[in-house]
Design a binder for these strands. Structure first.
Length: 640
RNA sequence: GCUCAUAUAGCUCAGCGGUAGAGCACUUGCUUGGUAAGUAAGAGGUCACCGGUUCAAGUCCGGUUAUGAGCUCCA
């Protein structure tokens, strides 16, 4: 039979040949590292029989797909078996791979804790040592059910029962008859398994549904070599070191307390960062045609009913109760969870003409949302946060140009904040939606055209748009490769109509404008969390809360130190002196650990020569400069 | 919201039935020292909150609150 290879060349093989036969035919090296094949675009086991005229490529253990298959085999054949060996009463649910690793969900009467992972790992090593080969059997629904019924694996039975296929259920066996149901493909033998480590245990619902039983989920990570494994474990450690909650405490930036869960108490230095960031965004917004507004914090439920929030999102809103003194008012209010209804109220004052569009309101709006208790996480997920929110009121024809302007605006802001890369995700119409297909067509096309014009790569998330319109989400990548979704650009065909926002068109008739909800940072709180982790606390000079500390070496130079501080302060630099009766090494250590960007050490020499000794964070080098030159350099550095 | 875990000095943590301990930080004294911890002394705690068991509870049990890891959610 004839097999076509990825380079379109073809090979003649005897009938009934497998992927492994093909690999052998190509070369012994390939045969050694081959673990699976892709047949006509679908991953198959290496020992599956190939069909005539199919297109086949070979997956080797060191490819991305290969590692994924290895992880898959590791969880389904090794972790699952180890758990069954150690806890014979346990039942297997599912064991997929995830980014960098895998997990397996099991039902276990005995609680499995972190301390048990060692034991399970040892059992896994024992299983791998057998280098058992893995063979596949194809069973009918009835036969497959019989197998798992006899093993009392009720989750597997459920999976089979709910499947709409009747035949070809894939059961993978090891030499000693351990069996697991799996979509495959799997490694041909356990000998291909590389380095792994079990990382954590937690609970997870069967099928991800909170109404179902909570299973035990065991997580692990796996790589081809010890080196890769260690590299990954190191990045985890690095992420832990950068944790904004830890750095926030160390650098004295903010805290939380029981009386206001999910709401930030900003300390002086944290608030300085916040203000710097806000000033930066504010000036950019002004340059880009936005008008800043401000809307009330507490608004009568009537407006939330009109906007639709009361119906849909009441669960997540903070509602105020009328107290005794004000009982005659009998009003129920809500803390705003969003700024948009407020912005429409401003828009609705007076009559708008098509000549007024696009009209762009911006607000650093403080919003409250009652997030479920288990979802809060430092600054990243809070109940009170400030959005760099904005709403663009425009016509359908202006969508494309406004999209382009926004993407460029966002891109320049991200670049100045230290994020060069971001991805764009276009979410299209969901099943439940408002608006005609015609307007959805037009809107989705406009968004896509704008991205294409600017030449940015993007991906499409079918059906992930909001019910009121398609949207773009912007995902940035931080210094250690993690992704954060921050910016958003959401078209809304619903709210203007609901709240009766109109403009008079060229035709003299009234029309509803398209509303675009947009944010670049998302929330200041979360974005500062991301900045802390991205920079590991070592903020760029212009953002740093304390920019310069002038540390005296002996008390004779105190006056000169204060003089330097005042010169810097006059130039708008956040400078402080440290005149304490401590050694210079003590002061350097303390201010370095607080991540102050510049330490100026001042001793007798500096005072006599009118110089400073400058030391930058992250470097042990010191550099002696003339005072005037140093100040000029520092002032220059303060520009974004 | 769900599961599991955690809550002791400003911070990091030890103590796990017989009414509290370390290091750092803080205060004071000595020390004026040249780039990541000078030195001595002192002060500092309703052991998260409410209840239970016990002669006796940071210590065991239950509840509440908050936090953490996941899950679910995120307009």
């Amino acid at each position: 039979m004839k097999i076509v290879l990825p380079d379109k060349s073809s090979r003649e093989l005897p009938a009934e040949s497998t992927g492994f036969d093909l690999a052998k035919d190509i070369g012994p090296g390939l045969a050694k590292s081959a673990i699976a094949v892709v047949v006509d675009g679908i991953q198959k086991d290496l020992n599956d029989v190939l069909k005539d005229k199919s297109e086949v490529s070979i997956i080797t253990i060191d490819s991305k797909e290969g590692i994924d298959i290895m992880r898959h085999t590791l969880t389904a054949q090794v972790l699952a078996k180890a758990v069954k060996n150690l806890y014979p009463e346990s039942k297997l649910a599912i064991g997929p791979t995830i980014e960098n690793g895998f997990y397996y969900d099991v039902e276990c009467s005995e609680a499995i804790s972190l301390d048990d992972l060692d034991k399970i790992e040892r059992e896994m090593h024992k299983i791998i040592k057998s280098e058992s080969s893995i063979t596949k059997k194809l069973l009918s629904k009835k036969e497959a059910l019989k197998v798992f019924k006899s093993l009392d694996e009720s989750y597997k039975e459920e999976i089979i029962n709910e499947s709409d296929q009747e035949d070809d259920f894939q059961l993978y066996y090891q030499d000693d008859d351990f069996v697991d149901l799996c979509r495959g493909p799997h490694l041909p033998s356990l000998g291909f398994i590389g380095s792994f480590k079990l990382t954590k245990v937690s609970g997870a619902y069967w099928k991800g549904d909170a109404n179902n039983k909570m299973l035990t989920r065991i997580y692990g990570t796996a790589w081809n070599t010890d080196k890769d494994l260690n590299k990954y474990l190191n990045t985890l450690e690095e992420a832990e070191k950068r944790d904004h909650r830890k750095l926030g405490k160390e650098m004295d930036l903010f805290h939380f307390q029981d009386e206001a869960p999910g709401m930030v108490f900003w300390h002086p230095d944290g608030w300085t960062i916040y203000r710097n960031l806000r000033n930066f965004v504010r000036s950019r917004l002004q340059d880009s045609g936005y008008i800043e507004v401000n809307t009330p914090q507490v608004i009568d439920r009537k407006l939330w009913e009109a906007s639709g929030h009361w119906d849909k999102y009441r669960e997540n809103m903070f509602i105020t109760e009328v107290d005794e003194e004000h009982a005659n008012e009998k009003r129920i209010n809500a803390l705003k969870p969003m700024n948009c209804p407020g912005h429409v109220q401003i828009y609705n004052q007076g009559i708008k003409s098509y000549k007024d569009l696009p009209l762009k309101y911006a607000e650093f709006g403080l919003c409250h949302r009652y997030e479920p208790s288990g979802t809060m996480h430092g600054l990243m997920r809070v109940r009170a946060f400030t959005q760099d929110d904005g709403h663009i009121f425009c016509t359908e024809n202006q969508i494309e140009s406004e999209t382009g302007l926004f993407i460029e605006f966002l891109s320049s802001l991200y670049a100045d904040l230290g994020f060069k890369d971001f991805d764009i995700k276009l979410s299209t119409r969901p099943e439940m939606r408002v608006g005609t297909d015609e307007i959805w067509d037009k809107a989705e096309e406009a968004l896509e055209a704008a991205i294409k014009n600017l030449g940015y790569p993007y991906r499409i998330d079918e059906g992930d748009g909001a019910f009121y319109g398609p949207k773009l989400d912007f995902v940035l990548t931080d210094a250690i490769g993690r992704e954060w979704q921050c910016g958003t650009f959401q078209l809304d065909f619903n709210l203007a109509e609901r709240l009766d926002a109109q403009y008079v068109g060229e035709d003299g008739k009234k029309h509803h404008p398209v509303m675009i909800h947009r944010a670049v940072l998302g929330s200041f709180e979360r974005f500062i969390g991301i900045l802390i982790e991205n920079y590991a606390g070592k903020f760029p000079f212009w953002l740093a809360p304390q920019q310069v500390v002038i540390a005296s070496i002996i008390s004779d130079v105190n006056d000169y130190s204060v003089e330097i501080m005042n010169l810097l302060k006059k130039q708008g630099i956040r400078a402080e002196v440290d005149l304490r009766n401590e050694k210079i090494s003590y002061k350097v250590r303390e201010h370095s650990s607080k991540k102050v960007p510049i330490i100026l050490a001042i001793g007798k020499n500096e005072m006599n020569d009118k110089t400073v000794s400058i030391r930058r964070i992250g470097s042990k080098d010191t550099n002696v400069l003339q005072l005037e030159d140093a100040i000029n350099e520092i002032v220059k550095e303060n520009k974004i």
